[in-house]
Design a binder for these strands. Sequence first.
DNA 1: GTGATGTAAAAGTCGTACTTTTAATCCCGA
DNA 2: TCGGGATTAAAAGTACGACTTTTACATCAC
Lengths: 233, 233
Amino acid sequence: MTTPAQGLHSHVLAALGLAITAGEYPPGTVLRSDELAQRFDVSRTVVREVVRVLESMHLVESRRRVGVTVLPIAGWNVYDPQVIRWRLAGSDRPRQLRSLTVLRSAVEPVAAGLAAENATPDQCRELTEHALGMVATSRGRRLEEYLVHDIAFHRVVLNASGNEMFARLGDVVAEVLTGRTHHHVMFEDPDPAAVTLHVQVAEAVRERDAARAEELTRQIAVGALQELDVLAP
Amino acid sequence: MTTPAQGLHSHVLAALGLAITAGEYPPGTVLRSDELAQRFDVSRTVVREVVRVLESMHLVESRRRVGVTVLPIAGWNVYDPQVIRWRLAGSDRPRQLRSLTVLRSAVEPVAAGLAAENATPDQCRELTEHALGMVATSRGRRLEEYLVHDIAFHRVVLNASGNEMFARLGDVVAEVLTGRTHHHVMFEDPDPAAVTLHVQVAEAVRERDAARAEELTRQIAVGALQELDVLAP
DNA sequence: GTGATGTAAAAGTCGTACTTTTAATCCCGA
DNA sequence: TCGGGATTAAAAGTACGACTTTTACATCAC
């Protein structure tokens, strides 16, 4: 689940990225690169590469004669899967989970509608398979197996939409679903209504009924949001 | 509009990023870092930092004994504003513009609905101001002035939604609107219907009518997509 | 043909020396 | 006392060269 982290670079990047996104260094904090080099026991070269990456995510800004300044959250590249993973691992997981779920509730219904128009027969088949997989694993504390099908289902929908921006949200959805399963922001067994809805979405897509696919997916999203309201503080 | 590009790093990054996103190096192409250093007349240090950033965008992958391999488009961080700008500047602008507009059509209506619930009085005022600004500049080839209000309007809506994921799409929307204006994927004067709709959205938000704000914004989105269908090849 | 072994090519890492920018200080005159 | 221009030094930016590590590929033995 975590990054392979082979190589000094990955290690330092993960450490710093996590620390910053966790709010360990509040915006405005300045870090000096050779101080960082010393702290992580790596050369300045490695630190510089890490800083450059963090800079491209707008987590920090490096200025001469000043140092590496942590930037305000408002500018962060919150769509970067790496950043998402760090934030979900950190302290503000609840907030993060909510805002991502709201994003899902906007995107996925439209994606499902498009999927109904564009899905290949193969994708329809996969969809049905995973929906049935969800049914099969929806009872008896089999959340891990259920999760696999759930993720796959939504990924296929997003891919089948034919829109690359939607398709790229597959990873985000995967992170959200994994996050809420592993942190018990979910009922012990999946909501049966949600399971049924997934099966119906697969049906609607297969029958090329875009409006129905969209509406059903919207209901799934509403349900997910409500579940979050109930279970998240 | 373009990056400040001070420093060797930014220069090389822009050059390479543009070239790759433009498809100048098809996926699978391998580049050697010291070859790049020579080509751009910079040290390997600088090239390495650039490669690390491109790697974090999943545009390339660097492997020992192999080199820097260009990755398939499917994995690119297409939500990175930097990547978006490069792609909009490159050859597949039409495709890019379309997929981003579809994304907008999914997100903005929901954002507008939330804005109606969460907008501060200040944001309501700004919204009205920009809507009126759009009316005032909607006739007589004043597209540049219109564009400023249009961008500001949508940015306020996204910010007022109170969802950080939506808020961060402000830059994306700005790029899309700028792109379509500057590349004539738009009527010579803005569609009067669209202008009216913006005024009505401002109204709906002011009156806390979420459903109406959402529906009106959906109509704006539909209009934008149709305009794209008509004017893009 | 298959599997072990060797080799070299490329990135990864490090240390150091130097350059450039620029925040902060100092100094001087009004 | 205050303001502004010159000075200083701190930090990042850049370059280079040496060394390490991984690993694709070729070679060889069986």
